[in-house]
């Protein structure tokens, strides 16, 4: 299940979307997410759908790769959709026992589902087309103003990048430790809650020890390669806005204005 999360994974191909400045993509994702909430009309969702399909096509990321990212949020989706279907008051369509299904409920649930799905697709499209380093660079640059209020932006960005690198390694390690303890007769599946929580100790302790050891190793390796914080650092590929970024911003602006306008429509 953890392996199915596509957020944070990069899909290495060349495409106009991959080529955009990560800040543009960050802004674009943000605008897209907001647009999903300002529009309340069918036409708005249609426009958003076309925009999304268009972006996926030019990003050259296979569609099934993107939909794979939806799997982990499926549970959240089912729960929130059923809440909306059954708990929205309005014109009664039919009832299954005490559960009443209303027309309004169906409508909000439908929009809710679309919003959530588009939200996940939109953000995974960004992470699939942007390397984690670019992404953290973009965050570091866009949030640079926070440095003035003593927020260690560079350090936070570096931590994020390292976390992204080590998450798959630690997942694999957890799997291995679990199997090794099972080989020593550990049982993670039976017993009450307290017993099960206690059964996690033989996994968590080795995992933490290993994480600390890796952290110490990594700190050494980074220092050995002249890392001394963000000061005086340069970039192999410094973030630079190009013509395509300007065009992208223009498109985003037009898209956003249209989406706001559709918010006033009653279709």
């Amino acid at each position: 299940m953890l392996r199915d999360i596509t957020i944070g994974q990069y899909y290495p191909v060349r495409s106009p979307i991959h080529g955009l400045d990560p800040r543009t993509k960050l802004a674009g994702t943000f605008i897209f997410l907001i647009s999903l909430f300002v529009t309340k009309s069918l036409i708005g969702y249609l426009i958003a759908t076309f925009a999304l399909i268009f972006l996926i096509r030019i990003s050259r990321v296979p569609a099934r790769y993107i939909t794979k990212g939806l799997k982990p949020v499926l549970i959240i989706l089912v729960i929130s959709v059923s809440f909306n279907i059954f708990l929205t008051p309005g014109r009664l369509l039919f009832a299954i026992g005490p559960l009443k299904v209303t027309a309004e409920g169906l409508k909000t649930a439908g929009f809710m589902a679309i919003r959530l799905i588009y939200l996940v697709i939109g953000s995974s499209l960004m992470t699939l087309t942007t390397t984690p380093t670019q992404l953290t660079d973009a965050l570091e640059r866009s949030l640079g103003f926070l440095n003035k209020v003593h927020v260690p932006v560079h350090e936070i960005a570096m931590m994020m990048a390292i976390a992204l690198r080590f998450i798959p390694i630690l997942i694999e390690e957890t799997d291995k430790i679990m199997k090794a303890q099972m080989a020593r007769g550990a049982d993670f599946e039976s017993g009450n809650l307290i017993r099960r929580a206690k059964a996690l100790v033989p996994i968590l302790v080795p995992l933490f020890v290993s994480a600390f050891r890796r952290a110490a190793d990594l700190a050494n390796a980074m220092e050995a390669r002249c890392y001394h914080g963000g000061g005086g650092r340069t970039k192999m590929r410094p973030l630079k806005y190009g013509t395509s970024d300007k065009r992208a911003y223009a498109v985003m602006l037009v898209y956003f204005v249209i989406m706001i306008l559709t918010g006033f429509l009653k279709i």
Binding site: Y10, R165, L218, A221, Y227, H228, R233, T234, M236
Partner: peptide, 19 residues
């Protein structure tokens, strides 16, 4: 594993010169 910082090979190679 514990000495590669970046998620992309070439970005990792660039880490030192960037520093």
């Amino acid at each position: 594993d514990n000495q590669i910082i970046s998620n992309i090979v070439e970005e990792d190679v660039a880490f030192g010169p960037e520093n």
